[in-house]
């Protein structure tokens, strides 16, 4: 097993893949958006319940690789209860993290998101990690009902 692979498949990712959090539909969703990666067939539906400026609840369903599923799971656990402004900020932080751009947060500040730091070494997998975030972003901004990585 190479060091890079261990970096990619960190325990947090393997755990969230095996036991995804918030892996269900939301009965009281105010918005639901489909996210596709047509190249590999990954497909998730992200449900959000937004109350004013707060993301009250997030759920997701669908199918894809360990990276995308763990990303959706960690995202849902991280953003549940946060404000829209915080979600936007973390979207930006996560994007920089997986594309290898220098970010403003330390590993400690990144918390669970730091598990995705290995993704930037795998250009083919960046889209897997970012698909749930792009989908959620669209749900928040309310501009689309379907998001595609292509």
């Amino acid at each position: 097993m190479t060091e890079q692979l261990r970096e990619l498949y960190q325990q947090v990712i393997l755990d969230h893949n095996r036991n995804p959090r918030n892996f269900h539909e939301l009965e009281h969703a105010t918005k639901k958006v489909d996210g596709y990666n047509p190249l590999c067939g990954d497909h998730y539906t992200i449900y959000v319940e937004i109350d004013g400026n707060t993301i009250k609840d997030i759920g997701f369903t669908g199918n894809g690789c360990a990276i995308s599923k763990a990303s959706a799971s960690v995202m849902s656990a991280t953003l549940k209860g946060s404000t829209i402004a915080e979600a936007r900020q973390l979207f930006d932080v996560f994007h920089k993290l997986v594309t290898g751009e220098p970010g403003s947060l330390s590993t400690a500040e990144l918390g669970r998101l730091a598990a995705f730091s290995g993704v930037s070494e795998f250009p083919a997998r960046v889209k897997c990690a970012s698909l749930p975030w792009h989908t959620l972003n669209s749900a928040i901004e309310g501009d689309k009902e379907t998001v595609s990585t292509e």
């Binding site: 590999c40 199918n63 894809g64 690789c65």
Partner: peptide, 27 residues
């Protein structure tokens, strides 16, 4: 079982093994 093809592809690739993963343009 329990492993998505995409993850199989990435791990095999690290060993120098090239396979295809996905829907093979046959959804």
């Amino acid at each position: 079982e329990g492993v998505h093809p995409h993850d199989i592809g990435t791990i095999l690739d690290q060993e120098g093994i090239a396979i295809r993963t996905g829907h093979h343009c046959a959804q």
